[in-house]
Design a protein around this nucleic acid. Sequence first.
DNA 1: GTCTATATCGCGATAGAC
DNA 2: GTCTATCGCGATATAGAC
Lengths: 218, 218
Amino acid sequence: MSTVRKRDAAATREKILDAAEELFAERGYHGVSIREIVGRAGVDLALVHYYFGPKDALFREVIERRGAGHAADHMAALEKLNAESNGPPGVAALIRAFCEPMFEKMSRGPQWRNYMHLLAHRALARQSEVFLAPYEKTFEPMTRAFIAAFREALPDADENNLFHAVYFMHGAIVYALAETGAIERLSDGKMDGSDFDTLLDRFVPFFTAGFMALAKPT
Amino acid sequence: MSTVRKRDAAATREKILDAAEELFAERGYHGVSIREIVGRAGVDLALVHYYFGPKDALFREVIERRGAGHAADHMAALEKLNAESNGPPGVAALIRAFCEPMFEKMSRGPQWRNYMHLLAHRALARQSEVFLAPYEKTFEPMTRAFIAAFREALPDADENNLFHAVYFMHGAIVYALAETGAIERLSDGKMDGSDFDTLLDRFVPFFTAGFMALAKPT
DNA sequence: GTCTATATCGCGATAGAC
DNA sequence: GTCTATCGCGATATAGAC
């Protein structure tokens, strides 16, 4: 009996989080009401406060639910690369390891896609608010680890050039993850923004060349 | 007398638009109330509806106030380039002409900066809503014109590669324009995200190399 | 053109029955 | 753990005095 109760409780929590994730990704924190979330989740209004407390705590929980695993995937990709290669990994391999854990999640199913949309949306948000903290926790430690690896791969490059290179690359990733439909409109429907396999095949040589260009002494 | 009235009216309109621009850029459409806008503008609440009607019409007006001039600057940069060069302009010159009109506006003053922040934020928004239309009007025709120019500059490149290259570049621009503080955090405060002159010096060779890499036959 | 006053609604949050 | 009922607030929007 109590196990049934417990299973229901966990299921209810998940239903709320899934609905919130999807709606926050679509319209942002302020664009979604708790009433709308419970409507989509098919649960009662009061249960949100019962499980999560105020609205901003629910938002944080949505980010943090997948955040740890997401960040761990990034670090694992980097460590795998370090283990497999003799000496420091090359630039192309680093670029691939940096973005593949994100692009891969786009085809894992609608929930992970919603989560990545939400992360992309948050990456562009200007204000700090309560919402920067959970975001920083997932993204920035691994970004720093990758920057260190890029520095090893390109030891003669000016450090400031590398910061900018990573900055450019990160912007392109965030834009692609957001799936705004821009590339479909740009190409008159010839391209498909959700085809991240094809995107990755062009992403790696494109940004490798960019890094190399900034690594040379001018 | 009536001229005074008219000047006051224009000034009131501008005060509302300036305050709305700043606040929408900070927290997005849903994150800002009309009351907050009139508070910052120092005008009465009812005047917003008198001048602009409902809230979404005010938002559109904020976008469109600077939209035409902004798009025209882009097209002028492209035409100037075409006029100055013998034959089709090169890739590096096109990249510079594409992003310079945006980066340049970041140092024109706080209002243009707010506007560019707002555009960057909108560029990542996933939903179409009422808000895509005014955005498309300013950005996409000029993006198409530049794509045509890139195709002329790199006639042997696969068209799909060029679409992706422009997509990557646009993402990096949007991210930089948003000024999220990412590069400051990334670099432990060594870099300054508002220094678009330095950024441009690295941006052009970086993306030129990327375009060239995708232009070669693989 | 501007401001006061107010209508109407939907929001987040909670108390308490079951 | 779930649901009903409701509180209090702040939102957009408007009518009408000045």
